[in-house]
Simulated assay, not measured.
Amino acid sequence: MKSTARNSPQPARAYETVLTTIEADLRSGKLKIGDQLPGERSLAETHGISRASVRDAIRILDAMGMVRTSTGSGPNSGAVVISDPAVGLSATLRLHVASRQLSVADIVESRILLETWAAESADLDSDPERSAEVLRRTAELLEAMDVPGLDREEFHDLDSQFHVLLSSLAGNAVIEAMMESLRLSISDYVSESVASDAAWQKIAKVLRAQHHGIHQAVAAGNGPAAARLLREHIEWFYTESRQL
């Protein structure tokens, strides 16, 4: 006779009651971005659980990008509600990539789908002031990336900001967060794939030229061209880095 223990419902962990309550309070508007969560003792008493279980819940919320924790006293101490969805998504993706349950190739393909969609969906006229600001900031990032001898990690950071900002022109916050999380989830694998500084400098030269082409197409409102250049850019770097 087969045991049914594996298929039987698992008892809820104590910290899950805190997560459920916070989710409900966010949905109802009782909790808002910037609000401070009650202290450990108050949450423990309210939910009838230990303070250790409360700390588990806060750590999970922190890892999910839902709260920022700090010590001390005052309005910014303890756990303050924030919302940084890319943090939680990227952390989860990074672990699954590391476990080899998600391949870097699949992450790259997903990123291409998101970025090319965002490029084709960008509408510079829907909010001209914001569009002009995004294009100004991305132009500044290009200038920073063009500095000779720029440190590789600095380049990757500027590169990430450039792509995320351009994707924001599509006006879809979910796509923007997902795209950033996909980039962050493989950032270490990308930086480690290029072994030598000499090889990196050759690659960086091409990346700079590609970035400028993408930026020009976006600024001109040519979504199809920007999408094509983005696909070529991402595929080229992934292929090139795998060969080194």
Rank of each mutant, 00 (worst) to 15 (best):
27 R>N: 04
155 F>H: 07
194 V>D: 09
106 D>S: 01
204 A>L: 05
101 Q>F: 06
131 S>Y: 14
139 A>C: 10
152 R>E: 09
160 S>K: 08
58 I>P: 00
41 R>Y: 13
33 I>M: 04
125 D>V: 13
35 D>H: 05
35 D>S: 04
89 L>I: 12
39 G>S: 05
241 S>C: 05
35 D>N: 12
44 A>G: 11
158 L>S: 09
229 L>E: 10
202 K>P: 05
201 Q>K: 11
233 H>D: 10
57 A>Q: 06
9 P>A: 03
71 T>L: 00
195 A>G: 11
117 W>F: 14
49 I>R: 10
176 E>I: 07
157 D>T: 13
51 R>W: 08
19 L>T: 00
117 W>S: 12
226 A>G: 09
143 E>T: 06
221 G>H: 04
181 S>E: 01
157 D>W: 13
157 D>K: 11
120 E>A: 15
129 E>A: 15
236 W>Q: 10
139 A>F: 11
153 E>F: 07
54 V>H: 05
186 I>N: 01
11 P>L: 04
237 F>S: 09
112 I>D: 03
193 S>V: 05
192 E>R: 15
226 A>Y: 06
230 L>N: 11
11 P>F: 02
14 A>N: 08
15 Y>V: 01
133 E>C: 15
234 I>F: 12
204 A>E: 08
136 R>F: 14
20 T>I: 10
36 Q>D: 04
39 G>F: 04
217 A>F: 04
240 E>N: 13
128 P>E: 14
148 P>L: 01
54 V>N: 04
38 P>D: 10
204 A>S: 08
41 R>G: 14
151 D>A: 15
229 L>C: 02
100 R>H: 05
89 L>V: 03
108 V>E: 01
200 W>T: 08
144 A>Y: 06
134 V>A: 13
161 Q>D: 15
216 Q>N: 07
57 A>N: 02
172 N>I: 00
181 S>Q: 02
